[in-house]
Design a protein around this nucleic acid. Structure first.
Length: 850
RNA sequence: GCGGGCGUGGCGGAAUUGGUAGACGCAACGGACUUAAAAUCCGUUGGGCGCAAGCCCGUCCGGGUUCGACCCCCGGCGCCCGCACCA
């Protein structure tokens, strides 16, 4: 009997699936639809095991649902715009498009080799004009509506790469690629009004009952809704022109009587106006802007302030004047960019007041404290209590006082209750050449003119020069010169391109009909959307998932979509990490080039080729830059694709991070071999023994139940453990009868989501018709899956002291009788008197005795 | 600082959400087959005591609730993730 040879078997079945169109999704089918997708990959060049794990998980779900009778859509595409292609172009002089497409070719082959049940007829890349042209179309519709706009905004500017960076691309104040210190610059920025949807984005989180709580919480915090009061402190005496006062935002209007100063952000328009008239103020603002933006810098940053000399009047007391300072810790882009300082009840204000000798008046009395002697020392009192020193609010609790203060300010016409969000509008433009062009024209006469939809797509030119930093599209010799669509005069195209997060914010809506003339084929989208199950990394918990939710709502309001939320179910799988290795000269080394030596508790590493010692570094997420990437292809070469799939799924729960080790692949490969051995074995011809037949049938139905439950509960590691067990059982019942045939038939189908090639080969060996891929999931008989006799552990005073047998569902009285009649139990109870007998049906017995 | 999560054998991890802790796999050890090795198969494998039946200890630490706690509560310790001068 020949050994199972994956390298012969696996390609054969992949060809068979392709030929049969086994995974083609049929829009409009009467079967219930199920849309499952994994986050599409960036075509970086090669698949790593993190990808393999992600796509294997999605494939288990897709194959399982298909077997369960669903019409499954399981598509794949490429998140193909972005900086790495430009860097490759800069470093090697290749064309970003060619580089990207050749990577796609390689990675598509790698994905296909994994035997994923994907409908490849729907594949697209975001750098295809057929895709990004449609993106330009809906972009212009949102622009016409005002949801896309231009604003002057402070941005993160990378002076080396010469582009704007998103907040997440700034790490410790430096550009993530260039490592240059990022500058804050004011630039005209294309933005989307995601803040218009802040409330709905927050509220709708409650409807996402198949999302992890962690992700919902992160989005909630990111949106950061707070309720408070916006009020104006009117100027006293001389004041700058063009303002009636200083508008501030506070969540603690109850502490207004504890105010000791008003502070402006250095970037506040009033600050800038004052700076124009006073060089000392200008110098101070300059000083503030120097401060780093890194977390460490902020944490240790000293509070800096400058008294402008301007005075304002307290809203509740016309005789009370407060100084207006400029303070480095006040942020321009939150609230109004100005605050009132209440040092007694806010730590930052307290630090500031202590440094500059400003008054500290407590107005919230902690429970139990004495109003005559309560003082605030080095620590502000931020908890609840009773208001004092506060005129009309005296005696109120904090919450009541907030309401009273807001009502009073509103009655005075100085402000109103307000809701403020941490979320900011989304800056969507990048000064990059390899991205989706923003389809507008700048005309001297007409201003900003959208390109007519009939002229879309606005495609990228060939022959951009990426050899220098900066925007290769902007310096292309001819591309930007065009005629104004409005007046026909010579005009220039916008040379900014869209953030790649825009590309990935709607791709799920394109798969239902990737060839549609409209951006979204409404009928197809209505059939397929929302995505029933989305699977991807936790690192996208906020940005990508928030943007996709926002764009969905925006397109819904354009009438292009009928859904409120794109992803009904979300699963965030853990990251795959690996040790990093460095040579003595600091060069990163690939794990495949390293030998690990273990001596007791210490591990050392050296280069395979030369024996040079290698430093073992931290365990980190696999990344090209640190070279700690393990390719699934290597595993598949040695053990076969099915073993590789089983391996990446078997040893840890899907949501957990895994530190990669190839140790599990041996076990996975053995499972493949053992399964095949059962199918390949000649049945032992013996007269079937009814008792043994019954045992095997029970084991089969138990296994079907266990594997089904584990897959439905996303416990793929446990599902594989149950398959290991089941194979072990089948092996102990070699005699060929109906029960064995039933067991093998079930086994082939149960293992199919994990090891699909093996399953087909086994199915063929059984001479079953068709392919497993098109066969229904096995059903179990609940009466067989349950034991009719139970072994119940018997505890005496909570310690296990024996066991008894009882029929399933036996009553408490029956079980108690069996226990007390048991000679072994009786012996153990000698000399003790029974106080109580607790029987948990079908579970356990505990005798309390003394 | 705020918010969230985790802590179980040599290792990855199970435990039906309060009911036999350590499923399954890896590694290790012993055995079978083999001239031999690989592969495969069969065993053993949390710690301690004991010839043995068996007994004691054991899910980060200290308390608590309960007939019964890896699971619930209180207080620590350690690690990980997100946000962060957000008024």
């Amino acid at each position: 009997m020949p050994r199972y040879n994956p390298s012969e078997v696996e390609p054969k079945w992949r060809a068979a699936w392709a030929e049969a169109g086994a995974f083609r999704a049929e829009t409009g089918s009467a079967r219930p639809k199920y849309y499952v997708m994994e986050m599409f990959p960036y075509p970086s060049g090669r698949l790593h095991v993190g990808h393999a794990r992600n796509y294997a998980m999605g494939d288990v779900v897709a194959r399982f649902k298909r077997a369960r009778g669903f019409n499954v859509l399981h598509p794949m595409g490429w998140d193909a715009f972005g900086l790495p292609a430009e860097n490759a172009a800069a470093e090697r002089g290749v064309d970003p498009s060619e580089w990207t497409h050749s990577n796609i070719e390689v990675m598509r082959q790698e994905l296909q080799r994994l035997g994923l049940s994907i409908d490849w007829s729907r594949e697209f890349a975001t750098c295809d004009p057929g895709y990004y042209g449609k993106q330009q179309a809906w972009f212009l519709r949102l622009f016409a509506k005002g949801l896309v706009y231009r604003r002057e905004a402070l941005v993160n500017w990378d002076p080396v790469d010469m582009t704007v960076l998103a907040n997440e691309q700034v790490i410790d104040g430096r550009g993530w690629r260039s490592d240059a210190v990022v500058e804050r610059r004011k630039l005209m920025q294309w933005s989307m009004r995601i803040t218009d949807y802040a409330d709905e984005l927050l509220e709708a989180l409650k409807t996402l009952d198949r999302w992890p709580d962690k992700v919902k919480l992160m989005q909630e915090n990111w949106i950061g809704r707070s309720k408070g009061l916006r009020l104006t402190f009117p100027f006293a005496g001389d004041h700058p022109a063009g303002h009636d006062g200083v508008g501030v935002y506070t969540t603690r209007p109850d502490t207004l009587f504890g105010a000791s100063f008003v502070a402006l952000s250095p970037n506040h328009p009033l600050s800038e106006q004052l700076a124009a008239g006073d060089p000392r103020i200008a110098a101070f603002i300059e000083e503030c802007r120097k401060g780093g933006t890194s977390e460490a810098a902020i944490e240790t940053a000293e509070k800096l302030g400058f008294d402008t000399g301007v005075r304002v009047v307290h809203p509740f007391d016309p005789d009370w004047k407060l100084p207006v300072w400029i303070a480095n810790f006040v942020l321009m882009d939150y609230g109004t960019g100005a605050i009132f300082g209440c040092p007694a009840h806010d730590q930052r204000d307290l630090d500031f007041a202590r440094k500059y000798g400003l008054s500290v008046t407590p107005v919230v009395l902690p429970p139990g404290a004495d109003p005559a002697s309560f003082e605030v020392g080095a620590e502000a009192y931020v908890d609840g209590g009773r208001i004092f020193n506060s005129g009309f609010m005296d005696g109120m609790e904090v919450e009541a006082a907030k309401g009273a203060a807001i009502a009073r300010v509103e009655a005075m016409g100085l402000g109103e209750g307000a809701t403020v969000y941490r979320l900011r509008d989304w800056g969507i433009a990048r000064q990059r050449g390899w991205g989706c062009p923003i389809p507008v024209v700048h005309c001297r006469q007409c201003g900003i003119v959208p390109v007519p939809e009939t002229d879309l797509p606005v495609t990228l030119p060939t022959g951009m020069d990426f050899s220098r930093p900066g925007n290769a599209l902007a310096r292309h010799p001819t591309w930007k010169h065009t005629a104004c669509p409005g007046c026909g005069c010579p005009a220039e195209r916008e040379t900014d391109t869209l953030d790649t997060f825009v590309d990935s914010a709607w791709y799920f809506a394109r798969y239902p009909n990737p060839d549609a003339a409209e951006p979204i084929d409404k009928a197809a989208a209505d059939y397929w959307l929302p995505v029933d199950q989305y699977i991807g990394g936790i690192e996208h918990a906020v940005l990508h998932l928030l943007y996709a939710r926002f764009v969905t709502k925006a397109l819904r309001d354009e009438g292009m979509l009928s859904i409120d939320e794109p992803f009904a179910g979300l699963f965030t799988q853990g990251m795959v990490t690996h040790e990093t290795y460095r040579r003595q000269n600091g060069e990163w080394v690939d794990p495949s080039e390293v030998d690990i030596l273990t001596e007791g508790a210490t591990r050392r590493a050296r280069l395979k080729a030369t024996g040079e010692p290698v430093t073992i570094g931290d365990v980190e997420k696999m990344s090209k830059s640190k070279r700690n990437v393990v390719a699934p292809a290597d595993m598949a070469d040695s053990y076969g694709v099915d073993a590789a799939r089983l391996c990446v799924l078997s040893d840890s729960p899907p949501e957990r991070d895994v530190q990669w080790t190839s140790a599990g692949v041996e076990g996975a490969s053995r499972l493949v071999g053992r399964v095949w051995a059962e199918f390949d074995a000649e049945p032992v011809i013996e007269p079937p023994d009814p008792a043994r037949e019954a045992e095997l049938r029970k084991a089969t139905h138990r296994a079907i139940k266990a594997v089904t439950d584990a897959i439905e509960g996303w416990r793929f590691n446990s599902a594989i453990a149950r398959l290991h067990e089941f194979v072990g059982v089948v092996r102990r019942y070699p005699e060929g009868g109906a029960a064995r045939r039933e067991a093998l038939s079930a086994l082939a189908r149960l293992i199919a989501p994990f090891a699909p090639h093996l399953a087909e080969e086994c199915w063929r060996r059984l001479d079953e018709p068709g392919m497993v891929a098109a066969t229904a999931w096995p059903a179990y008989d609940p009466t067989l899956a349950e034991d009719d006799e139970r072994v119940l552990p018997v505890q005496i005073n909570g310690k296990r002291r024996g066991e008894i047998r009882a029929g399933a569902g036996a009553s408490e009285a029956e079980v108690e009788k069996i226990v007390l009649d048991d000679p072994e139990i009786a012996r153990r109870l000698e000399g003790l008197s029974i106080r109580r007998v607790i029987v948990v049906k079908d579970r356990i017995v505990n005798i309390v005795a003394a």
